[in-house]
Computed example of a mutant assay.
Amino acid sequence: MNPMNSILAATDFSAPARHAADRAARLAHETGAQLTLMHTVSGRALDELRQWLGAGHAAEAQLLEDAGQQLRKLAEELASTRRVKTQTHLATGPVVTEIEREADAVQASLVVLGARGAGFLRRLVLGTTSERLLKHTHRPVLVVKQTPHEPYRRVLVALDFSPWSVHAIALARRVAPNARLVLLHAFEVPFEGKLRVAGVDTATIEHYRRQAGALATQQLHHIAQQAGLAPGHWDARVIEGDPWQRIVEQEQECDCDLVVLGKHGRSAAEELFLGSVTRSVLTEGSGDVLVSMAGTA
Score class of each variant (00 low, 15 high):
Met293Lys: 06
Gln245Phe: 11
His149Tyr: 13
Leu78Arg: 02
Asp104Ala: 15
Ile223Thr: 14
Val260Cys: 08
Leu134Gln: 09
Ala91Pro: 06
Ala58Phe: 11
Ser6Leu: 04
Asp104Phe: 13
Glu98Val: 02
Val182Lys: 03
Arg237Met: 11
Val277Glu: 00
Ala55Pro: 05
Ile205Asp: 00
Gly199Glu: 06
Arg18Leu: 07
Ala297Glu: 01
His221Ala: 15
Pro148Leu: 04
Gly193Asn: 11
Thr128Asp: 14
Thr129Ala: 15
Ala67Asp: 09
Ala24Asn: 00
Val112Ile: 08
Arg210Val: 05
Ala103Leu: 07
Ser14Lys: 00
Ala115Trp: 05
Val289Asp: 00
Ala45Met: 14
Val182Leu: 14
Pro231Leu: 07
Pro231Lys: 09
Thr217Phe: 13
Ala227Phe: 09
Ala59Leu: 13
Gly68Gln: 03
Asp104Ile: 13
Gln62Gly: 01
Gly265Ser: 12
Gln225Trp: 12
Ile169Met: 06
Ala9Tyr: 11
Glu188Pro: 00
Asp288Phe: 03
Thr129Ser: 14
Val166Pro: 00
Arg153Ala: 13
Leu159Met: 11
Gly193Lys: 13
Ser109Phe: 07
Tyr152Arg: 06
Asn178Gly: 14
Glu249Lys: 15
Gln226Cys: 08
Ala91Glu: 12
Val200Phe: 07
Ala176Ile: 05
Ala45Cys: 08
Val291Gln: 10
His222Glu: 13
